[in-house]
């Protein structure tokens, strides 16, 4: 990645995450702390499990939509940030410089898209979660494709991938991977609705107040 694109990633991601942390502070209560921590840990292990999508490529869950459904937007941003930082620092998944862009895509863009779709489709129970999951992955991958293309242009081809290749390739693979995200997220949400409906209500006040 081009250094300028890296800097831009950090510059965009940090204020949003800081705002989410600030706003979360006013919402979180003693009761939800262990639940948030378990969910974060669960999403961490879920991200390790790749599933094949054909053509010798695999995909794995991002989990942003699941986090938004269960914790609201601010909670999801904070949880996704924690997961990505640990993946980067402890497991070397994604370099330190790329962390800003990864945060922007998976801890900011993906939860924002999921939140937007969930709100827009409020009342359409069956469609909201799968559509939000699919869109969050697809748009985050599109953003990643744009970053790769921007790197290519700014660095005169030294970094990144030319846009005419990067954007369709990222979008193409992730349109399929996003179906996996939609199926898994919907499955988990339906399951929780059945066995532990109170979990889906934790973010109620935040949604109403947001």
């Amino acid at each position: 990645m081009d250094p300028w694109v890296v800097l831009l990633g950090w510059a965009l991601a940090i204020p949003v995450i800081a705002l989410a942390i600030f706003r979360l502070d006013r919402r979180v209560d003693e009761r939800t702390v262990p639940f948030m921590a378990i969910l974060a840990a669960g999403i961490f292990v879920a991200q390790m499990l790749n599933f094949p999508v054909g053509g010798g490529t695999t995909g794995h869950l991002i989990g942003a939509t699941l986090a938004v459904v269960l914790l609201g937007l601010n909670g999801a941003i904070v949880v996704m940030t924690a997961i990505l930082v640990i993946q980067c620092l402890v497991f070397g998944d994604g370099g330190l410089t790329a962390l800003g862009l990864n945060l922007l895509n998976m801890a900011v863009i993906a939860p924002l898209v999921a939140y937007g779709v969930l709100r827009a489709l409020k009342g359409h129970e069956g469609a909201a979660v799968p559509v939000a999951s699919w869109a969050s992955v697809f748009l985050a991958s599109l953003a990643c494709g744009l970053m790769l293309s921007a790197s290519y242009v700014i660095s005169d081809g030294a970094f990144g991938i030319i846009g005419s290749v990067a954007i369709p390739a990222m979008a193409g693979w992730h349109a399929v991977i996003a179906i996996g995200e939609a199926v898994i997220t919907s499955g988990v949400v339906l399951f929780l609705k059945r066995v532990a409906p109170e979990m889906l209500e934790i973010n109620g006040p935040e949604e109403a107040g947001a």
Partner: peptide, 15 residues
Amino acid sequence: YFALSAGSPDGLERV
């Protein structure tokens, strides 16, 4: 995962 996916690149790695 080890039966089906291990060793194959994910979406970004593939691109």
